[in-house]
Amino acid sequence: MIPKITFRDVVRTFPVKGGTFTALDGVSLDIADEEFVTVVGPSGCGKSTLLGMAAGLDEPTGGEVLVDGAPVTGPGPERGVIFQQYALFPWLTVRRNVEFGLRLADLPAEERRTRAQRAIDLVGLTDFADALPKTLSGGMKQRCAIARAYAVDPTVLLMDEPFGALDALTRVQLQDQLLDTWSQDRRTVLFITHDVDEAVYLARRVVVMAARPGRIHKIVDVDLPYPRTEEIRLSPEFSRIRNEVWHSVYHQSPAAV
């Protein structure tokens, strides 16, 4: 079976004064259809660069990035991208924000409304469909951004620190909301985070990156059942996996960072 996302010997360098900076060096990774994978690592390890290439917002210096076996040559509707900043249009209601990508696709008005409403219901914003972003909390704004990504029916969700700007309680609530949405309407998810607990709680696999140059240091399987619950978060097995990932991120040998 062809992996949903493939990074094959990916290298990304940037010109700097006096030479080049290698952000990624020889990264290879396969992500299966409907798999939830998180990527965690020290600052400067190339996490966001990796996601940007999957999104088609950047391109590798060497190697290749594939989706469904085809090279990524630019952005595409099959890949929804969600950033840390909500990027909502402040003058549009939740419904209009969610419909935005559907308007770009020139879908009929009735289909736009139906698909947008389904996405709004999926993320629990039904009662706020006609609200403006300024009236929403940070967590609700991010749910709106997730609904906008879902509305265009992507097969892949690429999420770059989407909960990084939220307070701790809201962040945990949004993790549960995201997993609930994912369980109802499966997508392949590549999720970038700095938070080890978040990485373990969400994923089937955690990819631990090493920096300078950015590369895969370790891949940790998360053998915990879905749905994930508070009981799982507090379980000894969660702690064991969390400690393994934490040690892999923060106790890499000097040669690896």
Rank of each mutant, 00 (worst) to 15 (best):
L102P: 02
L102F: 03
R103Q: 15
L104G: 05
L104T: 08
A105N: 05
L107D: 03
L107F: 11
P108M: 00
E110D: 13
E110I: 00
E111Q: 15
R112W: 02
R113D: 15
R113W: 07
T114E: 15
T114A: 13
R115C: 14
R115P: 01
A116I: 13
A116D: 11
R118G: 01
A119Q: 10
I120P: 03
I120D: 02
L122N: 08
L122Y: 00
V123N: 02
G124S: 06
L125Y: 03
L125P: 04
L125M: 07
D127T: 07
F128V: 01
F128T: 00
A131H: 13
A131Q: 12
A131F: 12
A131C: 13
K134T: 08
K134G: 06
T135Y: 10
T135H: 12
L136G: 04
G138F: 02
G138V: 05
G138Y: 07
G138W: 06
G139M: 06
M140A: 03
K141V: 02
K141M: 12
Q142P: 13
Q142V: 08
R143L: 09
A145M: 10
I146E: 07
A147I: 05
A147D: 05
R148T: 04
R148F: 08
A149K: 02
Y150F: 11
A151N: 07
A151F: 04
A151K: 02
D153P: 06
P154Q: 02
L157S: 02
L157V: 01
L157I: 04
L157F: 03
L158Y: 01
L158C: 03
L158P: 09
M159V: 10
E161H: 08
P162D: 07
G164C: 07
L166A: 15
L166T: 09
D167K: 14
A168W: 10
L169E: 07
L169C: 05
L169P: 06
T170D: 12
T170K: 10
R171F: 03
R171Q: 10
V172P: 00
V172I: 11
V172Y: 12
Q173P: 07
Q173H: 14
Q175L: 04
Q175I: 09
D176N: 14
D176E: 15
D176S: 10
D176W: 11
Q177L: 14
